[in-house]
Structures are given as C-alpha cells and as structure tokens.
Design a binder for these strands. Structure first.
Length: 515
DNA sequence: ATAGGGTTAG
C-alpha cells in the first residue's frame, strides 16, 4: 500500500497534475493516465476529479461515475464543484447518494453542503444532519451557517449559531456583520464589529458596504477615513470598491477622486471591477465625461461595465445616448442581463419613450430570457404614472406577480399628484401608509394634495394619523463636499457663511428654469 | 497526499 502511494505521487504524471492549470491540460493528463494504466489509482483520479470539479462539473461527475469505490474526498470535491454552478441542488442529491452507499460525511462535507441549500427548509435539514453526526463543527461550518441563515432571512438563527459556537474568528464575525446588515440590524452589526477581537480589510469592507447597503453613506465614509487615518489596514480591492460606491452615493467627489489618483498605478486599477466602480462613481458625481472616458479606455468590459455606463448616462439625463449604448451592446457587447434592463428602462423614463419601453420589455423576456423583477415593474409603473396613464399603472401593479413595495406605490402616488388624480392618489396613499407607516414624507405629500384640493378633512385625518403613530417630520437637508469640506443645508436655514450668495444663485437658476 | 468560509455592478 505505502509503496503504491510513493510510486503514484512520485510519478511524473502526478507531478504534472499538480502543476496543471487549464482544463485542456488536465484532460490530456487524464488521457495519458488511462493509456498507461494509471487511471485505476484513486490518487490520480481523485486529484483529477478535484481539479476538474471547479471548471467542468460534468467532466468531474463523469470521473466519479468511473471510480469503483469513491471516497468521501471525491464526494466532497464534487459537492463543492456543484456549489459553484447553477445546479447547486445536486449537492444534496450527492449527499443522499453518498449516505446510501454507506460513506460517512466528515468535517469538510458540511460547510460546502450548507452553501448549496436553496431554501431555509433544506438548510434546517442539513443542520439536522450536522447535529446528528456531531463533532464536525469548526470555523468554516460556523461561518457557512451564519451566511446561509442570514441569506434566508433567519438572522436570529444566524446570531444563535454565532453565540453557541465555540469557533469564532474574524471570518465568522464578518459573516454575522454582513448577515445583520442585510437584514437591517445595523446596531447589531456595529456591536459585533466593536467587540470582535481582530479586524482585517474584509471586515472593514463588510462594514462599509453594509452601511452603503443601508444608505448610511456618511457612516461608511467616516469609518473609511478613520481606518485610513489610523493606518489600520491596507485597503484591498473590494474595500476600495465599497468606498468608491459610498463616495458615489453621497457625492464625496474629492475622497473618491483621491482614491482613484492614489491607486492609478496599482496593479488592480486596470481590473474590470475597479474600472466599473470608477464609472459608477464618476457618473454618480455628475462627471459623465470622465465616466465615459474610463469606459472607452477599458480593454475588457463585462455586462456590469456596460450596465453601469448605461445607467450612468440615463441618470445624467443622456437618455438617448444610453439607449444607443444599449443597442451598441446588443451588437458587440456581452449579453444583457436583468440589471442591464433596469438601466435601459431607467433611460426610458420619459413619456416619449413609452413605446421603446414596451418593446424592450418584450425583448427582455422573449429574446434574452431574462425574468422580470420588481425593479423592472417599478420602472414601467413609474413611466406609466409619469405619463399620466394611471389606470394602466394601477393595472400593472395588480398584474405583477410579486407584492408591490414602497417604491412602486411611491411612483404611482407621484404620478397621481402630478396629474392631479386625487381619487387614485388616495388608493396609492393607503397602500403606502400601510407599507411605510413611519415614512413622514408620504404623509406630507398626501396632506399637501388634500390641501391643494381644499379637502381639509383629509388634511386633518392625516395629521391625526401622524400623531397617533408618533411619526415625526425630519427636516429635509442635503450636503455637498467642496475641497474636502462638507457643507450641510437644512430646509430654510441661512446659517451657511455664503448663504446670501447661494440664494442669489438659486434665484437665477430658478428664473432660468422658468424661462 | 489531494478539498472548505466572510467584502465586490441597480
């Protein structure tokens, strides 16, 4: 036995296998192994299987079928391979098959199996198996369980796994931070972050993107600055992506641009994601020329790059250019996906483009086989409502297969107000106030509508509701960063040192708009 | 002897 091992692992073919980097090379080695009779050694085939599982799952599965006595190693490799494909559910099937053949899972089996669960139900079943086998818990399992419970909105279970696990490291803490953020538990996420024994670039990245996801952009930037000032961690690629995202969201132009300058020489500045993030950042800050410049300069562009550029053009008022770019993408770019269609539908948010929108929507499902998400319905309903086609908008809300959210009813209400459809606005308002009972802005908009129509009972009714529900009206404010200094403005405030000049300019702008 | 987890376009 031992002699076989030594013979096999010192075999030139085995050594070659260790160095092989492409699937083609691997297949050649496999063919050689079969020719010279080495394919019967599990040391060779198991390795072939493990390597190919990452890049060609069907090939790997074929290898498994040829192994007479597959080991737990082989099954683990294949389950891992499937977890990286769209056929994740095969993982559970393989696990069942493996159990039926009497092969016992080990500690390496479960973290991957957990990641293949496609719903809370299967996750709970796998967790049951874990408890049954016992003694398989480690940091990998803890973090996988936390991720998956949070993914399926069972964040309380994720917290429980964390609290009860004796294996907590920086990865487990980061998983829980992400889990808390994606379920809106911001205070909990901060608490985990404050209390974790060590932090690295990924934990900072998770915090910053978590803040961004929850629209706490200033917190994101503040944390980033604190991190940089103290020289805590060396920012990695994804951290810079997150912070560029935050800078774009708040218009922190100087910070974002300094990141761009600082890192222009770094090896990853030419990478795809980085370029895409820069396009997004410059477009969000209104520098669409710079965004376009980066887009044109990028040697490789993927679907995200194109989608980001299309959306950037659309949100900068270059609707026609955005639609043109989409058509160019269809000609010579990557295949558009659901996000691309959100971007190009945003570009159609003018009533003259209603026909284009419908045409795109049809193309989306018929030509590209992209499923409609709530965002696509949102774009259509916004456009219909904007165009004054409120009955049609209402019908689409009723027809859509998912429950409408605040954004959908918000667009509808806005359209009703623009076209002074008080009766329909009431319908939309009722849904909105039920969905977002603490959103003061919605009450204000509705109250204004009643007031404009002289319906004082309506105004009084809303005021009463606000008092009963203890909804406070937060004063509106905005800020802009100039030369690294943040200038904050509240509604009606005249505290800014240049308030006089600013109001004069605003007056000029208003006049220009009216003419 | 070979295998596993956290951040990343709207």
């Amino acid at each position: 036995m031992n002699r076989t091992i030594i013979y096999t692992i010192s075999n030139p073919l085995y050594l070659l296998l260790e160095k092989c980097s492409t699937l083609d090379q691997l297949k050649q080695i496999h063919a050689q192994a079969i020719t010279i009779g080495l394919a019967r050694f599990t040391y060779i085939t198991s390795k072939l299987l493990a390597f190919s599982a990452i890049s060609d799952i069907d090939y790997a599965h074929a290898i498994l079928n040829q192994i007479s006595m597959p080991t737990i190693f082989d099954f683990n490799s294949l389950i891992l391979g499937y977890s990286k494909t769209s056929k994740q559910e095969f993982g559970i099937l393989l696990y069942t098959k493996m159990r039926n053949e009497g092969i016992k899972p080990n500690a390496r089996t479960f973290p991957v199996l957990v990641k293949t669960c496609d719903c809370l139900h299967s996750l709970l079943q796998v967790h049951g198996q874990i408890v049954k086998y016992g003694n398989v818990s480690d940091v990998y399992l803890t973090s996988s369980l936390i991720c998956m419970y949070s993914n399926y909105k069972a964040v309380e279970l994720a917290k429980k796994v964390f609290e009860e696990s004796s294996y907590k490291n920086v990865v487990c803490c980061t998983s829980l931070i992400t889990g808390c953020f994606s379920n809106g538990l911001i205070d909990d996420a901060c608490k985990v972050f404050d209390e974790m024994p060590e932090r690295n670039d990924v934990s900072y990245s998770a915090m910053i993107s978590g803040f961004v996801k929850n629209e706490l952009f200033n917190e994101a930037i503040r944390l980033f600055c604190r991190m940089m000032d103290r020289g805590i961690v060396n920012p990695n690629r994804s951290l810079l992506l997150s912070i560029l995202n935050a800078c774009g969201a708040v218009g922190a132009f100087d910070i974002g641009r300094s990141i761009h300058c600082q890192l222009a020489e770094d090896s990853f500045s030419n990478e795809l994601d980085f370029g895409t993030a820069l396009i997004n950042f410059y477009a969000k800050c209104g520098d669409i020329e710079k965004a376009k410049y980066i887009f044109n300069k990028m040697p490789c562009k993927d679907v995200a790059t194109w989608s980001t550029m299309i959306l950037g053009l659309a949100t900068n008022g270059k609707n026609e250019t955005a639609i043109d770019l989409f058509e160019e993408m269809e000609q010579k770019g990557p295949v558009p996906n659901d996000i691309t269609f959100v971007a190009v539908l945003v570009a159609c948010n003018h009533k003259t483009l209603l026909k284009t929108s419908w045409r795109l929507l049809g193309k989306m499902s018929k030509v590209y086989n992209v499923k409609l998400t709530i965002e696509h319905y949102g774009c259509m309903i916004d456009l219909l409502a904007r165009s004054g086609l409120l009955k049609e908008a209402e019908m689409l809300i009723k027809l859509m297969p998912m429950a409408p959210d605040g954004a959908i009813w918000g667009s509808f209400l806005h359209g009703c107000l623009t076209h002074n459809e008080m009766h329909l606005a009431e319908t939309g308002g009722k849904h909105l106030l039920a969905l977002e009972p603490n959103h003061s802005g919605r009450y204000v908009v509705l109250a204004n509508m009643y007031a404009n129509n002289g319906s004082w009972e309506g105004v009084i009714k809303l005021r009463k509701m606000m008092t009963e529900r203890k909804v406070a009206i937060a004063p509106g404010w905005s800020f802009i960063e100039v030369d690294g200094i943040v200038n904050k403005f509240f509604v009606g405030d005249r505290c800014h040192p240049q308030a006089g000049d600013l109001h004069e300019i605003l007056q000029l702008l208003n006049n220009a708009l009216l003419n």
